[in-house]
Amino acid sequence: MPQITIDYSGLMEDAFDRAGFARALHEAVVEIAAAKPEACKTQFRPSAFTAFGYEDPGARGHAVAHVTIGLLAGRPDETKARLTQRAVELLREHVAGGAFTLHASAEIRDLDPSYRKADA
């Protein structure tokens, strides 16, 4: 915990500072949600195809990035809102130079009580 996943349009690849984003997001999760730094884990999943509205996907004028943060249950809604707002801000800060409009979003989900982890 936390389990963080970033799904993003592949056309962002060269414009997205993933390492910088992960570090900044981990710092935000520690500060805002009281997580331990060593507990922060992030996976990035580029998408080969993104469709936006009625635009021809070949135009490549839009990119989508969505952050999902899984936390153990019990954090207040205000904490979750602060963290998702910060995640969206960090996306905007760490995606630069792309010839596309970035559509950034984030959400917090409570991990199911069945959640378990193991470090090998």
Rank of each mutant, 00 (worst) to 15 (best):
I4Q: 02
T5A: 15
I6G: 08
I6Y: 10
Y8G: 08
Y8F: 15
S9R: 10
L11Q: 13
E13S: 14
E13L: 13
A15F: 04
A15W: 06
A15I: 02
D17S: 03
D17E: 07
R18N: 10
A19I: 09
G20H: 03
A22P: 05
A22W: 01
A24P: 10
A24I: 07
A28W: 03
A28G: 06
V29R: 01
V29E: 01
E31G: 07
A34W: 05
P37D: 00
A39F: 08
K41R: 05
T42I: 11
Q43R: 14
P46V: 09
P46G: 05
A48C: 12
T50W: 12
T50H: 12
T50D: 12
T50C: 14
A51R: 12
A51E: 13
A51V: 13
F52V: 10
G53N: 07
Y54T: 14
D56P: 06
P57M: 06
P57S: 10
P57W: 10
P57H: 08
P57I: 10
G58N: 08
G58H: 02
A59G: 12
R60L: 15
G61N: 13
H62Q: 10
A63G: 02
A63P: 03
A63K: 02
V64N: 14
A65H: 08
H66A: 12
I69D: 02
I69M: 09
G70T: 01
G70W: 00
L72V: 13
A73L: 04
P76A: 06
D77T: 11
D77Q: 12
T79D: 01
T79L: 04
A81V: 09
A81C: 02
R82N: 07
L83H: 01
L83P: 00
T84K: 00
Q85R: 13
A87C: 01
V88T: 05
V88A: 07
V88C: 04
E89G: 07
L90Q: 00
L90Y: 00
L91N: 02
L91K: 00
L91A: 01
R92S: 11
R92M: 12
E93T: 08
G97C: 01
G97W: 00
G98V: 01
A99R: 06
T101I: 11
A104E: 01
S105K: 03
A106I: 04
I108R: 00
R109Y: 11
D110K: 04
D110M: 05
P113L: 04
P113C: 04
S114T: 15
Y115N: 03
A118N: 11
A118Q: 13
D119G: 13
A120N: 14
A120W: 15
